[in-house]
Write a protein that binds this DNA or RNA. Structure first.
Lengths: 218, 218
DNA sequence: GGCGTACACTGTGTATACAGAAAGTGGTGA
DNA sequence: TCACCACTTTCTGTATACACAGTGTACGCC
């Protein structure tokens, strides 16, 4: 086929992005079988690009091969979430620390501060909007820290729990905002250890909230 | 084709493993173009499994797509090595700390201790042998720490610099042995902070050695 | 009626065919 | 000699064909 559509991307890439989006927004629930032909028909392409897309999903941890064939959308277990938050804590305390020594911290983070304040003053934002800001903020802090590798690692870890974030703990919205503000303020005040502590507290609180939610689902 | 050879693995997997081995042992130098047909002929399979193998190599960071097509074996820059060692330090100080609280530490690590002592007493081992032990030891410590995720992350980071390890700094052999012993002893003595410090020192020394080697190549 | 076998269906793994793009290659003209 | 253009080669991306494995179903046999 001709391919090379408007976005100068391959069908495999677009298939990957579309499937990833479907997983992250919950359209494809954990456990869903990723049958190549089914999604080939759905996306209007052949199995080949779908195959490539599924391979990428697996390498990002969003899908898994259980017994050897027919991959499924990953069901992230509680212990896996704990491990991810643990690893993120190890990495992100450092990025917060390093970001606090960056010269561009203020100009980079002020827009985030404004958006969060908007959340606090205005109407409750859609969970998706807040989730996006959350992801962008953590990534931007890693970028300020100056390590491309840490950016990649943190982004990869964060996406794995992204479908779990999605508004599943609404009572975390306000605390999350305040914690993010504390992190931003410590970084822009160039206080590395305060920033690291704020990040650690934030991720610990997320962890506690998830545990509490598991124990008392309603 | 019939496939399903003796090892019950797909051709794609075996192609991946063979290409990976060729990259890690230096047969395929950084910058080598990974042309699908070339390696399909070389491995005696069609382009399809080679394509899958290359995708896996890219997802592991061992290969890259530079401008959009024709992937190449990754050339790991000095700054990337520094970033990898930095990230490993963040993760592995923690695994050392946690491993020191594990009940199976002694029985797991004593064989490593014996092998390292063998290196010190007997003839100088091949660099590949030492490199393998190095990788296994760091992985085993992560396993003792009890986090599957940390195992995966550390293993992934370590393989990215593996082709760089390969005997490129022979004068690190002895110090490396002693540092490994110090880590093992601290862990088996159940001293978490000592273990973390030993790990940090080890990775810092590796870093210093690489920098020194860059500045004084001979 | 229960059980076993044959067959059809579905799904993946692999090979191959084909189109379009990029990169040589050679030849011609200034 | 150098520049430019056509042709060929080679590469990737994509679609498709086919083989094998697993699964379920229906039919026949006991």
């Amino acid at each position: 086929m001709v391919a090379m559509n408007e976005s100068t991307k391959t069908l495999g890439d677009t298939a990957f992005q579309r499937l990833k989006a479907m997983i992250l927004d919950g359209t494809l629930e954990p456990g869903t079988l990723l049958r190549e032909k089914k999604f080939a028909d759905l996306l209007g392409v052949s199995r080949t690009p779908v195959r490539e897309a599924i391979g990428l999903l697996i390498s990002e941890g969003l899908a898994r091969r259980v017994d050897g064939s027919t991959p499924v959308v990953s069901r992230v277990s509680l212990s896996e979430i704990m491990e991810i938050l643990h690893a993120r804590s190890l990495l992100e305390c450092e990025t917060a620390r390093k970001a606090a020594q960056s010269m561009q911290a203020v100009e980079t983070l002020l827009p985030f501060r404004a958006r969060i304040l908007g959340f606090l003053e205005g109407p409750r934002p859609e969970s998706r909007v807040h989730s996006d800001l959350d992801a962008q903020l953590h990534l931007e802090i890693a970028r300020l820290a100056g390590s491309k590798l840490l950016c990649e690692l943190i982004e990869g870890l964060k996406t794995r729990t992204r479908m779990f974030d999605q508004g599943s703990i609404p009572e975390r919205l306000l605390p999350g905002c305040y914690e993010h503000l504390a992190i931003i303020d410590a970084i822009t005040a160039q206080q590395p250890e305060t920033a690291a502590a704020a990040m650690k507290l934030h991720l610990t609180n997320v962890r506690e909230a998830i545990i509490a939610r598991i124990n008392h689902p309603f």
